[in-house]
Amino acid sequence: MRFPTVFIDGDQGTTGLQIHDRLRGRTDLRLVTLPPDERKDAARRAQAINECDVAILCLPDAAAREAVGFIRNSDVRVIDASSAHRTQPGWVYGLPELAEGQARDIARARRVTNPGCYPTGAIALLRPLVEARLLPRDYPVTIHAISGYSGGGRSAIDEFESNEAAVAAPFKVYGLALEHKHTPEIQLHAGLAHRPFFVPAYGAYRQGIVLTVPIELRLLAPGVDGERLHACLAAHYAGARYVEVMPLADARAMAHLDPQALNGTNDLRLSVFANAERGQVLLSAVFDNLGKGASGAAVQNLDLMLAH
């Protein structure tokens, strides 16, 4: 029996290592990696890509585009974990829970672009509400998110884990030029008419994300409140294996959100916190930036593609 071959191009980066760990020991596929002296050899990489069934690209954007350009074998399927193709036509967005039929589209696709970590939480919260017309497409969306420092890749990990001054800083807001590369991805796949205001940050812990979106009920249609927003999310994700919408009663009992609560999993937990008296709602997403936000999502997409 022939097992499908999976080649990870860039398996020494943060995401690549995590994917490798998740696939190691699988008996339903053959995992292909290159020895250290061949990892930067363009000809050897091109050969490996064209000889595999599925190539998973864990590379900087330019290198990911280069890798796609290597492909001559039309049977090769690709999962790109970089941000190079997330807003490009011809690529299927790799968030299976995005909409009805999305998992089917991923399963059939030749080219899948893995979502970014922050966009996974933001889009999961916003897209169902926009599609249900509970949140206007032109709503002035603001997103605040805190990630573990591993979200910055190897350079951020080295900085936080080897630099005493960096570790001493418990919280770093970045993206102050308001040009974060995830913003167009969020706008497109959430269905927003305008660019959202996105404020990312790193905390002095390794992995895990808390992402929040504040909603002013006075800007929504009459009768739209926290309960209706919650009901929409709960209905959209009913039966989703990896997405949980926390019951409103449980959310009311919460005093804080822990970004590390789902570390090591591919789970995504969505919550709605409502204050009817003040006319305000806070949407939140908690997940592992290395799980559902990266390697876990890639493996989920791979499993869909291999099953087709």
Rank of each mutant, 00 (worst) to 15 (best):
T15Q: 03
T212L: 00
A55D: 12
V32M: 14
D11H: 15
A238P: 10
R24E: 15
V112W: 00
G94Y: 06
P128C: 13
A307G: 00
M305R: 10
L125P: 12
P89G: 08
G152N: 02
A107I: 11
P96G: 05
Q102G: 05
L270R: 09
F160W: 15
E216W: 00
I79K: 03
I209W: 02
T265M: 04
D11M: 05
Y118I: 09
L98T: 14
G101T: 12
N114R: 08
I143T: 07
E216D: 13
L59H: 06
D9L: 12
D80I: 10
C232Y: 02
I146R: 02
Q18H: 14
L220I: 03
A166T: 06
E51L: 14
T183C: 13
K292Q: 04
M254E: 14
S271F: 08
A107C: 10
T183V: 15
R133W: 03
E51V: 05
T265R: 06
V68P: 03
L211F: 02
S271G: 14
A43T: 08
I56L: 05
D225F: 09
V272P: 10
F3R: 13
H180T: 09
E185A: 12
L59T: 10
H144N: 11
P200A: 03
V130W: 07
Y237V: 11
G116A: 03
E159I: 03
I186L: 01
G296S: 00
E164I: 14
V299P: 07
K172R: 07
G121Y: 13
T142D: 09
D267N: 15
P184S: 09
T27C: 12
Y205I: 04
L29V: 10
I106T: 07
R111F: 15
I143P: 06
A201Q: 04
D53R: 11
Q12N: 05
Q280L: 15
L129G: 08
P36N: 08
A249S: 11
G153D: 07
W91L: 08
V286T: 13
P115D: 11
S295N: 00
L126C: 12
A84E: 01
T15N: 05
G175P: 01
R22P: 06
H20P: 01
T15S: 06
I56N: 07
T212S: 00
V6F: 08
